[in-house]
Write a protein that binds this DNA or RNA. Structure first.
Length: 622
DNA sequence: CTAGGGTTAG
């Protein structure tokens, strides 16, 4: 920052002085300097110049400056703020963490009979959209029409956006139909509105029919797929976008990377990372997090760490993401070490950081560490544990066999236990054979979460293990009766940029015959090693032939068989599964890793298993 | 001035 040396003595050159001051203002980056200039505006009388004051407000109210209180003070001193100044303040608050203030200001603006201009409504409606303030939006809608801005494309697009984003997609659609002038933004808002609420067919209808698409149109659609869990479709669309010759920007790349993360599509993730590097796209905070997360969720912690280390700035999110990476890999010590380093670096952990840390302790069975971290949340970091944190603790204690302690925690916690809490306890009961308690909890779960198929299966299993076949069958038929279906198990493997998906007993894959042949080969070798199927799950399904077949061909088994025939010997096989690995598959995969000398990395619904030479990184604790 | 983004975990 150069010293401020504006010659203010000569009254005739006051205009050029204003201009010069304004230039300085725009270059200002520190609050102190802004305040200095403000003081100078006062001293020199320039404070009476609406232009100078306006610019001063504008640069101070920009999102780069956190402190709106200061701007507000300046604003409040102005006797008759003009429209520009009101707009500036509304814009400031619409981008802040108190957007309500924007609405209040607008109200005051009306009271003072200050006229609007075309810039007033977009700012104001932005505040409405973050607040999902529909009533206010309707009032503003009326004002827009009354004051003759009903044909202004910025005002109407802003309206359209609020309606679309706040779940009033019908109003948005109606408005869209009535618009005389629609531009690409109008279309994109419709796509985003429908996509965000899971109405992908409608979103796609708009996407398909719009006259010209830009990168935002594609991204809104891709993001809709990701939001609906259709990550494969999201990636396909990303590829189509490239083929259509639309250059992806950081937003498109980020959302596609998160699709890769969900899918465990390492190759595609690497490709996007390389694209970012090749095109000189700056890795901002979000891209940094997504990259770390992608590598972590795709099983490559070395690369995740590499990205993390190379980042210019590391904030809470970046640390949290890398810690979570180690957590899901069962590398609790690394996670805990990073937590210490994070503290040393002066970065404050947040609630999500603690979820990651507690997950790490839980997966590794570090009961004492977990307990002390949980305690430190309130005592050291002043964070109130949420239901997720209690869930982690119940899981941690229950998994370690401390069922009574887990139950005790549930009874004493200040929050109402939800399905996830009981689910964690039920799982613990199952692992440690506490069948009586398991049955009680299973019943609770069926009541509070009647649409979740997995709960029925769990309870039925427990009945079966207790030898209560009638009741096991009863639970299953209850499930059928209520029309609840089990989430089908699905495993995927990514090869040469193509994600292959398998579901249990699947016959869909073009190479299915070969895959089943390979699986039979594998079973033969397993038998020679003395393997016998873990039949716990099988017995329950005896009454249902189709399911029995499905269990023999669990989706991950098919994916592994496909992996072995489709890759060179020694190549690591990476599988992603949407459910937890069952005991039988875990045993089998360990054996396969030894017999075929293959590293097999399986990502479960909650964690990674690295199978190597007959052993698994989870040390059979999962 | 209006439109698309991430980290928990279900």
């Amino acid at each position: 920052m150069e010293p401020i040396s504006v010659n203010l003595q000569n009254q005739t050159s006051i205009e050029s002085n204003v201009v010069q001051s304004l230039r300085l203002l725009e270059r200002c980056s520190k609050m102190v300097e802004i305040k200095q200039i403000h003081a100078r505006l006062y001293k020199t009388g320039l404070i009476g110049e609406p232009n100078a004051v306006s610019r001063h407000l504008a640069s101070t109210a920009s999102p780069d400056f956190g402190s709106l209180t200061y701007v507000r003070k300046v604003f409040d001193e102005i006797s008759r703020p003009n429209t520009f100044m009101w707009n500036t303040m509304i814009r400031g608050y619409s981008n802040s963490n108190e957007p309500e203030a924007a609405l209040l200001l607008y109200h005051q603006m009306l009271c003072h009979s200050v006229p609007h201009n075309a810039y007033t409504f977009p700012f104001l409606l932005k505040a409405c959209s973050t607040l999902s303030a529909l009533e206010e939006t309707q009032q503003i809608h009326a004002h827009i029409i009354k004051t003759g801005f009903g044909l202004d494309v910025y005002a109407t697009n802003s309206l359209l956006h609020v309606y679309a984003i706040s779940g009033c997609i019908k109003s948005a659609h109606l408005l869209f139909e009535r618009l005389l002038e629609r531009d690409i933004v109008s279309w994109n808002s419709m796509i985003d509105g429908y996509a965000k609420f899971g109405r992908l067919e409608m979103a796609f209808e708009f996407f398909k029919n719009m006259p010209v698409k830009n990168v935002v149109s594609w991204t809104a659609m891709i993001s809709g797929f990701v939001g609906a869990g259709l990550n494969k479709e999201a990636l396909n669309l990303f590829c189509e976008m490239l083929i259509a010759g639309v250059k992806p920007d950081k937003v498109a790349l980020g959302i596609s990377l998160s699709a890769c993360a969900h899918l465990g599509a390492l190759d595609q993730g690497r490709w996007i990372h390389a694209y970012i590097a090749k095109n000189g796209i700056k890795i901002d905070r979000i891209l940094g997090c997504v990259l770390i997360d992608m590598y972590g969720k795709c099983g490559d912690m070395e690369e995740a760490l590499e990205v993390f280390t190379k980042l210019e700035k590391r904030g809470t999110s970046e640390w949290t993401t890398i810690i979570n990476g180690f957590a899901i890999h069962g590398q609790a010590q690394e996670a805990l070490d990073l937590f210490v380093q994070m503290n040393k670096a002066g970065i404050k952990p947040n609630l999500i950081t603690f979820t990651a840390i507690l997950t790490a302790c839980s997966h590794a069975g570090l009961v004492d560490d977990g307990k002390s971290m949980f305690k430190s949340m309130t005592t050291v970091y002043r964070l109130n544990p949420t239901i997720e944190h209690y869930g982690c603790m119940v899981d941690l204690l229950g998994r370690a066999g401390l069922l009574m302690e887990a139950k005790d925690l549930i009874e004493k916690m200040p929050l109402k236990p939800n399905a996830a809490i009981w689910g964690a306890l039920l799982n613990a009961c199952w692992i440690h054979g506490h069948l009586e308690l398991g049955k009680q909890i299973g019943k609770i779960l069926l009541e509070i979460d009647p649409g979740h198929g997995g709960r029925y299966i769990h309870l039925a299993r427990i009945h079966a293990a207790a030898g209560e076949w009638d009741q096991a069958v009863e639970v299953r038929s209850q499930m059928k009766h209520r029309g609840v279906s089990k989430l089908p198990g699905c495993s995927s493997i990514s090869l040469n940029g193509i994600v292959h998906e398998f579901s249990a007993g699947d016959g869909c894959h073009p190479q299915m015959e070969k895959i089943y042949w390979m699986w039979n080969q594998i079973t033969e070798k397993l038998r020679q090693e003395g393997y016998k199927p873990a039949t716990g799950d099988l017995l329950l399904d005896l009454y249902d032939e189709e399911k029995e077949r499905a269990i023999q061909y669990h989706s991950e088994k098919l994916a592994i068989a496909f992996g072995i025939i489709s890759t060179r010997p020694q190549t690591t096989i990476r599988i992603v599964k949407n459910l937890r690995v069952c005991e039988d598959c875990h045993i089998v995969t360990k054996l396969i890793s030894k017999i075929y000398s293959r590293d097999i990395i399986v990502r479960d619904r909650t964690r990674f298993h690295h199978f190597k030479n007959g052993k698994c990184s989870c040390r059979d604790y999962w």
